[in-house]
Structure formats: structure tokens, C-alpha cells
Design a protein around this nucleic acid. Structure first.
Length: 528
RNA sequence: GCGGACGUAACUCAAUGGUAGAGUGUCAGCCUUCCAAGCUGAAUGUUGAGGGUUCAAAUCCCUUCGUCCGCUCCA
């Protein structure tokens, strides 16, 4: 989340914050999102998708796959004037534990912490020092814990010298946990307030093998990107790809978030869609800008077109340890407004990851580029060996779904159905609905025939709904809440002149068209 | 992890310590020729879970789980 300038924060009617409660209520009611394990009381940080949510998320994933892998950037040329080439991989959630050592996920983020129950402070377990008697046992006197270079150091030293005379410093890690009851925490009044050390590793641990023990620890990936880097050489060796090119990977990742919050926004299990685009170091900044701009345009193309979406370049001091440039595509969620929450990060990762894996695995990951190097007399080039740089557009699909739902949610009290979901046709889980105006006079039969035709052609990209129950108004209203963009109704005239009405979700307007025009109409609307 | 608010039907919410209800939605029937229309009827609850106090608990107390808000954290 980021702060934004005051002039942008002003709420016009168009971007006034929507009620998150109303959105969550509709998502439950219509089967988009359920709390995971709800009948058991729920489980913190996990959410399930219902029928409409599952299809909607699939549509988003497919849109990403089409526009990033199969026809990257809608066929746009890259900054080198060539078409953009990408291939997919599908890599496992569990990899060799050394992958996460190389990536830096184990080394940097598994520090055990101890909490002080009295002062509510939290300390790095291996940073806490303790004053103990220079020789012998402390007896029934406390051990005086302190943090080096903090006020507690001098304060505790004074007390310790009074108690023991000469003192020595040991580390808290050398004090048996059973003796924590005798430790006086740095700023505490009472002894024994420190909890036993707790692991705060954000990676999920698991064990490989049916009789597995502590030597068989493995980790569930916290990002899909590493699956690409460790297969970089395989793809180069087997797939006739040439730098520059991209490798995409989608799938589930896990992070033990300290505080899962804000509906599905910060879930512990989530799906990513990541592309690692490899290029020559000299061209990397151009590619970084190219991908940054395309990713912004892409999110706009599927329905986040308003000013709730921004592209934000990170400040230098915000950059991750590996990155030389990062932008975020951010959305103004109702719960972040007037600030924004991250949907996708586009990072220039340099050659950090390939360097790390080359070092840790011992495998040579350099790329031999035969189109570079000095020109030889025979007309070919000498070639150049290098570790490609990498541009990483990394999107969160669950956050994407959430942003699209929030953006789509529209309240208009003047409509018969005051709440409706203005989902982009490409994303909408229900693509079209076919209704007989009334369930008699042969209308259901004609409707059923049209329904079968529409479903045969478009059923592979989403639901096609048929409904003859209750009044036409209720059926339109139901489709409005489900986000179905187009409803076709067979009425009394259909039998006479073969025409039906098309009712548009966003305007409520109806348009009469020949039944033969229904498939071409949907083709134009859905296959763009 | 800390502090606060909350948890009753699918949804939104009522119910002084004393028989668990309404509206909406859903379903069925009738009626209906274009916008949650009308009429009739139906189903749906261990009041988040577990314990305690009480003759009696949705209501009071404790524990726990979950949701939201503020801190903290967020490769």
C-alpha cells in the first residue's frame, strides 16, 4: 500500500470507495468466494472459490496465458523491433531445498525470535546477550539480558555487577530454554517473561517421505519464479529459443503471512502468473520499460480502466536486494483507499538469480549468443557468452480477481437491480444467458435450441445460462449480480419473424436482432 | 504478536436472562408478453465451537476459532 498525493485522493462519485462488506456479501451470495473450511469455523488466511469465482479466475489465467505466452503483447513488437517470444513451463511447488538457499529465501528470513510477555517487545533470538557471573552459578539471582548498543546494556550491567561482582557476557542462545525462567528481559521488571524462541520463517515447511524426519525437510515455494530459473538451461538446450525470450510459469505459492488480512488480498495460499524475460544486459532497461508499460495496458484492457489503477515506480531505497528497478501495478481497493495495493510487480532482477543458482548448483548457466561478438571473415559472428538479465512481470491472480470484482461492483439505486457486476466480457464467468420470455407458447423450445447453439460455440470459454423460471425481471437481476454481460430473450414475435431481444447488462437497453445474428454478435463481443 | 469491535437462516438484520423471528433470496404451484411485479405455499438454525453460572443462556462469565478495524509485520 502506498500513500498518494492529496489531489488524487479526492473522491469523485466515480471512484468513491465501495463497501467491502457489500462486495463480500455479494461474492458469497452468488458463489464467487467462500471462506475456506467454513463449516469448521474457517481457517485463517485461506479462501475458496465457488462456481462463478472458479470460472472467473480461470478466465483471468487464460487471458494471461494467451497474451503473455501464446501471442505475447497482442503481437506488438519489442524494443528490438522483433516480435516477442515466450514459452511456458509448469514447475513443482516442492523443489530441492537448496533452491531456496540460492534464492535467498532461507538465509534471510528464518530468524527465531523471542517475545517478552511483560513489555510486548520482540527480539531476534541470536541478538540477545546475557550478563552472567564470571564464574560459577547465578544461584537464585537472575541472569540479566540486554540488547547490545541499547540503553538496556548499561542498565543491566549495573544490576549484574551489583549481583555478581565480575560478570561475563554470554549469548541467550547459550542459555537453556529451561532456564529462561531466571532471565530478566532487557526492559522488564520481572524475571522469566521471555517466551521460548519461535521460528518466523514465512515459508511453509513440509517433509518428504512417508517416514520422514527432520533431515527430510522441504519447503513449499513462496514464488513460482525460481522454477523458471532452475529450468533456464533445460529450456535453452531443448526448445530452440534465442535470447531475448521469456519463460512463463503459473501456479500456487505459499507464504506464512504474519497477518492475513483484507479478504483474499493477503492469503497464505495464492496463485501467481510470472514471466521471466531473459535479455542481453545492454538491452535490459529497454525491455524493463517495455514490459512495465505493457502490463499496465493489459490490466486496463480487461476492465481496470479507470483511475483506480496506477503504475508506480519504486524509489531506490525500496528496491529488493536483487533488483535494479521495480514498478508496481497498483489498484485502489476499497480497503486501501485512498492508497493502493499491489496487483503485480515488474522487477528488473539483473542476473541475480542465474548467478545465485550457478554458484549454488555448480551448473553453468551462461548463454552463448551467436548473434553477438565481432564479425568474422566468413560472415558469421564470434559469439558472446553471458548471463542474461531478467525482467520479471509477476502478477497475483487472486489479487487480480479481487481487483476485478471490486472494480466491477456497481451500485445504482435507480435500477430495478441496484447491485450489479460490470465484469469485462472476457473475464465474466457467465458469457450469455438465453430466456424464454414466458414458459409457454413454444418459447421454451425455441430458447432451448438457441441455447444449444450458443453453448456449442461459446461453452468452452465460460458458462451459458438457460432459465425459464420466475419473471423476466428476476432473471435479468440474477444475471446482473453474476456479471453476465448479455441476455437473449425469446418472445411472442420470435416465432413470427425469427428475431430476439438482446439486453445489455450495463445499460439495461434492449436491441432486437435476428436470431442468426446472435452468434456473430457474441463472436464480436467475446472474442476480442 | 498487541489492542478494540463483532459472530443469530444463503444474504441483511431483530429478539428485557423466559416459546429463536422478519425482510430479501431460494424452491414449488398459479398467474404472467420485458426488468428483483402479483397471489398461494414450502424448505432452511446444534444462535461459530467448547466449557461454566442459572430453575432457565442468543443474552452473563471463561476458553477457543473466525471476520473486520488500528498498531506491528510484509523477501
Amino acid at each position: 500500500m502506498t500513500a498518494i498525493p492529496a489531489e488524487q485522493a479526492a473522491n469523485t462519485p466515480a471512484n468513491a470507495p465501495k463497501s467491502m462488506d457489500a462486495i463480500m456479501s455479494l461474492c458469497k451470495r452468488r458463489g464467487f468466494i467462500y471462506q475456506a473450511s467454513e463449516i469448521y469455523g474457517g481457517i485463517n488466511g485461506f479462501w475458496d472459490y465457488g462456481p462463478l469465482g472458479a470460472q472467473m479466475k480461470k478466465n483471468l489465467r487464460e487471458a494471461w496465458w494467451q497474451d503473455m505466452i501464446l501471442n505475447p503483447c497482442w503481437g506488438k513488437k519489442g524494443p528490438n523491433g522483433q516480435r516477442v517470444d515466450c514459452v511456458p513451463v509448469e514447475t513443482r511447488i516442492i523443489q530441492h531445498p537448496k533452491v531456496w538457499e540460492a534464492s535467498g529465501h532461507i538465509g534471510g528470513f528464518n530468524d527465531p525470535m523471542v517475545d517478552c510477555k511483560e513489555t510486548k517487545s520482540r527480539y531476534r533470538y541470536d541478538h540477545v546477550s546475557v550478563y552472567a557471573p564470571a564464574s560459577g552459578d547465578a544461584g537464585d539471582k537472575p541472569l540479566f539480558a540486554y540488547m547490545k548498543d541499547s540503553p538496556s546494556e548499561a542498565k543491566q550491567l549495573k544490576k549484574a555487577e551489583k549481583a555478581f561482582g565480575t560478570v561475563k557476557t554470554i549469548m541467550l542462545t547459550d542459555v537453556p530454554v529451561a532456564n529462561f525462567a531466571k532471565v530478566l528481559a532487557p526492559d522488564a521488571e520481572k524475571v522469566g517473561t521471555l517466551t521460548e524462541p519461535k521460528q518466523f520463517n514465512l515459508m511453509f515447511r513440509t517433509y518428504i517421505g512417508a517416514t520422514a524426519g527432520e533431515n527430510d525437510v522441504a519447503y513449499m515455494r513462496p514464488e513460482t519464479a525460481q522454477g523458471v530459473f532452475i529450468n533456464f538451461k533445460n529450456v535453452v538446450d531443448t526448445c530452440r529459443v534465442k535470447v531475448p525470450f521469456g519463460i512463463g510459469n503459473t501456479g500456487t505459492s505459499f507464504r506464512n503471512e504474519v497477518t492475513p488480512r483484507n479478504y483474499t488480498f493477503r492469503s497464505r495460499e495464492f496463485e501467481q502468473a510470472e514471466l521471466e524475460f531473459f535479455c542481453h544486459p545492454d538491452e535490459s532497461f529497454e525491455w524493463y520499460k517495455f514490459w512495465r508499460d505493457f502490463r499496465m495496458a493489459w490490466w486496463q484492457s480487461i476492465g481496470l480502466a479507470g483511475d483506480n489503477l496506477i503504475l508506480r515506480e519504486h524509489d531506490k531505497d525500496e528496491l529488493s536486494h536483487y533488483s535494479v528497478g521495480t514498478s508496481d501495478v497498483e489498484y485502489r481497493f476499497p480497503f486501501t483507499a485512498p492508497g493502493f495495493g499491489e496487483l503485480e510487480g515488474i522487477a528488473h532482477r539483473g542476473n541475480f538469480d542465474l548467478t545465485q543458482h550457478q554458484k549454488h548448483s555448480g551448473a553453468k548457466l551462461e548463454y552463448f549468443d551467436q548473434q553477438r561478438g565481432e564479425l568474422l571473415p566468413n560472415g558469421s559472428r564470434r559469439g558472446e557468452r553471458y548471463l542474461p538479465h531478467c525482467i520479471e512481470p509477476a502478477a497475483g491472480l487472486d489479487r487480480g480477481v479481487l481487483a476485478l470484482l471490486c472494480e466491477a461492483y456497481t451500485k445504482d439505486e435507480s435500477r430495478p437491480s441496484p447491485e450489479f457486476m460490470k465484469l469485462h466480457p472476457r473475464i465474466a464467468p457467465i458469457k450469455a444467458a438465453i430466456f424464454p420470455l414466458v414458459a409457454k407458447d413454444g418459447m421454451p423450445e425455441i430458447a432451448e435450441k438457441l441455447y444449444n447453439e450458443v453453448r456449442a460455440k461459446f461453452g468452452k470459454i465460460g458458462f451459458i445460462d438457460f432459465d425459464e423460471k420466475q419473471t423476466i425481471g428476476k432473471r435479468y437481476a440474477r444475471m446482473d449480480e453474476a456479471g453476465c454481460p448479455f441476455c437473449f430473450t425469446i418472445d411472442g414475435e420470435t416465432a413470427k419473424d425469427n428475431t430476439v431481444t438482446m439486453r445489455d447488462r450495463d445499460t439495461g437497453q434492449q436491441q432486437r436482432m435476428n436470431m442468426d445474428q446472435v452468434l456473430p454478435f457474441l463472436t464480436a463481443k467475446l472474442e476480442t
